[in-house]
Design a protein around this nucleic acid. Structure first.
Length: 526
RNA sequence: GGCGGUAUCGUCUAGGGGUUAGGAUACGUGGUUCUCAGCCACGGGACCGGGGUUCGAAUCCCCGUACCGCUACCA
């Protein structure tokens, strides 16, 4: 049997990290077995703008490199892949279930159902519908309709024995049929519910392996009931542990951002990203700027392969030490047998560790490509940078080295692209390094060194500064920090000599002059 | 409440009747360096609890406990 897996997102407008993990495992399993991965859109309960709400989800998957063989925008032999467009199929399936006596029309009003449920709760029993308004014959139905009632369709669940199946992750599981509710599969307005739609679609799409989140484990019997009742061959089921909140055990939720932010590790990652957006002068949209969503990582400039690699290890491992996987290695090694049974909590700090390794391993040219869009957003680079500009970017990227952890970190080095008279000074650093006693004077005496040093390159600059330090009888720290602040405006940064070389002689002198003027003015900064 | 699921360092995990319980990440200390980042070295840190089986239990069994899910005309 050919392997076909699926992921069925609801068009919510964003791509949740936990959902991606589930999709990834489906994708990996399909690729591992040379099968197909299908994207199906679960939009049974939403009439709003599906296309717009789907956009971020599809974009997110494309960014991550999780491609689908069938589904929205690519089509496929089982189209349409939108549940909202498949109601005819569901209607037929409901009719079949009705005809086989596996479902019934129920004419209870919402109030009557609620009353039964509440009674059960009071008596601390599991609520099982009494079937009091069940219409098994057309005569019954006509009578109820005569009373002005409308019908939903409910599953007529067995009242004995157990539903057993072998879960590919959890092993054998069993549920008593008698404890299963007569679930509604068709609403009074004729629309259909998830379990019906899901069972029908899984069959129609030829899904061989249903790999989904753990929360569906308890739902499986009712889907098996539907599928078996319709005479479908059952898929294999694999229930993945859910992705838990950082440092916690509850399910990771987009809505609990505030709570997660009270956790230092999580906050650190969030704030790092927020800082990048702030530097870009872009507003942080709380709705999507959330490390629980994939959009966050794309926005800030994470490597998609780092995100995927991290997610792979959230609930799956190959052995006791392998952590870094290429796309091909993931596909080669992935197996459901090695999926964990317990929930894994999401740790953005660990994700960052993967990101750092990926980014550091990137050749400079690739980093330049990653970083350039951010310089464009800053207005520093045009869409078609010239060679000089590209070289400058490459030089900064190379000098920054592993300080650029995500592509957006380039915003911390804008001073290399700004006008000598315009780049900002960090006031505190300025006061400390140039405002200190004698600092400005030393800087003034150092200036001629930069005028004459030749070539104006890191190594010779280093040597020149060493000679200056010896001649002055000072420690290197007594001059180097002042120079750094003068030419970059900052107290921290990468190697000073690289910085000087990138800027070039003229810029360095101009910047030192500007700093000295500011120092004379006593303002500390402009 | 009922049913189902899960339980190893803070976190992700490996392992599993006899191990110094391994790795990663995070954290701490020291070193290197012009700051930062990094790198190097070192360090602290775990088998949910109680019974049972056994020469021996973190591992197997039972009972608890905690957490999660389902128990919707949500998905």
């Amino acid at each position: 049997m050919s392997v076909r897996t699926r992921f069925a997102p609801s068009p919510t407008g964003y791509l949740h990290i936990g959902g991606v993990r589930t999709a990834l495992f489906n994708w990996l399993f399909a690729r591992r077995h040379g099968g197909q991965f299908v994207l199906r859109i679960d939009d049974t309960d939403r009439q709003r703008n599906v296309e717009a709400a789907l956009r971020p989800i599809l974009d997110g998957f494309r960014w991550l490199g999780i491609d689908w063989d069938e589904g929205p925008e690519v089509g496929g032999p089982c189209a349409p892949y939108y549940q909202s467009q498949r109601t005819g199929r569901y209607r037929t399936a409901v009719k079949e279930l009705l005809d086989r006596g596996l479902a019934y029309r129920d004419y209870a009003t919402a109030d009557e159902t609620t009353a039964e449920r509440e009674a059960a709760q009071r008596e601390k029993r599991r609520f099982i519908y009494s079937r009091r308004w069940m219409a098994e014959t057309d005569a019954d139905a006509a009578r109820f309709e005569g009373e002005g009632r409308t019908a939903v369709v409910r599953l007529k669940m067995p009242r004995e024995r157990a539903c057993r199946f072998d879960d590919l992750v959890r092993g054998p599981v069993a549920f008593d049929w008698a404890l299963e509710q007569d679930h509604v599969i068709q609403r009074a307005d004729g629309t259909h519910l998830y379990h019906l739609a899901s069972a029908v679609d899984d069959h129609d799409f030829g899904i061989s392996h249903v790999i989904r989140a753990e929360e569906h484990l308890s739902n499986t019997p009712r889907q098996i009931f539907i599928a078996a009742g319709l005479g479908y061959e059952l898929p294999r089921y694999a229930h993945l542990p859910y992705v838990a909140a950082p440092g916690g055990s509850e399910k990771l939720s987009k809505r609990k951002l505030g709570k997660y932010l009270s956790q230092p590790d999580f906050k650190k990652v969030h704030d790092h990203g927020a800082g990048i957006l702030a530097a870009l002068g872009e507003d942080v949209v709380a709705e999507t700027f959330n490390p629980v969503l994939v959009e966050f990582y794309r926005d800030v400039g994470y490597r998609p392969e780092a995100v995927v690699n991290y997610l792979l290890l959230l609930g799956w491992s190959l052995d006791d030490r392998t952590e870094d996987f290429t796309r091909d290695e993931m596909i080669e090694h992935f197996s459901l047998e090695r999926v964990n049974r317990s929930a894994a909590s999401f740790d953005p700090q660990k994700m960052m560790a993967f990101e750092e390794r990926r980014m550091n391993a990137l050749p400079v040219a690739a980093k330049v490509d990653a970083v350039s869009p951010y310089l464009e957003r800053l207005g520093i680079l045009g869409t078609e940078p010239n060679e000089t500009e590209k070289e400058r970017v490459a030089a900064v990227v190379a000098a920054a080295g592993d300080r650029i952890k995500v592509a957006g970190d380039i915003v911390r080095y804008t001073e290399f692209f700004q006008d000598d008279a315009a780049f900002p000074y960090d006031e505190k650093a300025f006061r400390k390094r140039i405002g200190a006693p004698d600092a400005a004077d030393r800087l003034r005496r150092f200036r001629p060194v930069l005028e004459t040093v030749d070539p104006f390159e890191a190594a010779s600059l280093d040597a020149a500064l060493q000679r200056f330090v010896e001649a002055e009888g000072i420690r290197i720290g007594q001059i180097i920090h002042a120079v750094r602040v003068a030419v970059t405006g900052k107290g921290v940064g990468f190697g000073l000599f690289e910085a000087l070389e990138i800027l070039g002689r003229a810029a360095c002198l101009a910047r030192i002059d500007r700093a000295l003027e500011a120092a004379d003015a006593g303002s500390g900064a402009d």
